[in-house]
Amino acid sequence: MPEGEYRGMNLTILDVDHENVAYFGHCADHDFHLQKCTSCGLLRYPPGTACPWCQNREFEWTAVEGKGTVHSYGEVHQAIQPQFREKAPYMILIVDLDTQKGQPTEHEALRVAGNLATPDGDLAPPELVRQVGIGSRMRMVFADVGEGLSLPMWTLDEDAEQPENPWRYPQEYNGV
C-alpha cells in the first residue's frame, strides 16, 4: 500500500484504489502519466473510473509531458499545519498542461495542481514565489513521499521564455 509521512500528514492510497495507486506510482518513477480514454482518446485529470466525455470505463496510462502555464494560484501566508508554517508563503498553482489545452471545449484544459517548488521538489523560497504568477511557464518536478508515492510539483521552466510580468496579486505582504 503506497503510504508515507509528508509535512506532518500521513498519506495513504489503498491497494484497492487502482487508479490512484497507478497515478502516484508513475509519479514515484518521476514519469508523469495520465489516463487516456480508449474510445475518444481524451486524457483526464485527476485520475478517475470513467471518461467524463464519453463514459467509457476503459483507459490506458499514457506518458504526458509535464509542461504548462500557470492558470491561477493561491498564495498562503498564514499556513495551517506547523510544517507548512516554516515555509510560508507558499504557492498553490493550477497549471494548464500544454497537452490537450483548449480541448474538448475552449475553456477546458488538464489543470494539474501542485505547489511552487524548487527543482528538487521542496517548497519554494520567497524569492522564487515573487517571480511566479498567472502566465508563468512551469515544468513538473516531484516530491518523494514513500515507496510508490510521489507528489507532482511545479518549478519555473528554466528553458522556457517567461512572460515579462506574470500576473500577480497587486498587494505585497511582507515583501512578497
Binding site: N10, T12, D17, N20, P46, I80, G114
Partner: peptide
C-alpha cells in the same frame, strides 16, 4: 490522515 483522492489536494497545504 489524508487518503485516496484527497492526496491530490491536501498535501499541497490546500
Amino acid at each position: 490522515p489524508v487518503g485516496g483522492d484527497a492526496v491530490h489536494t491536501a498535501p499541497y497545504g490546500w
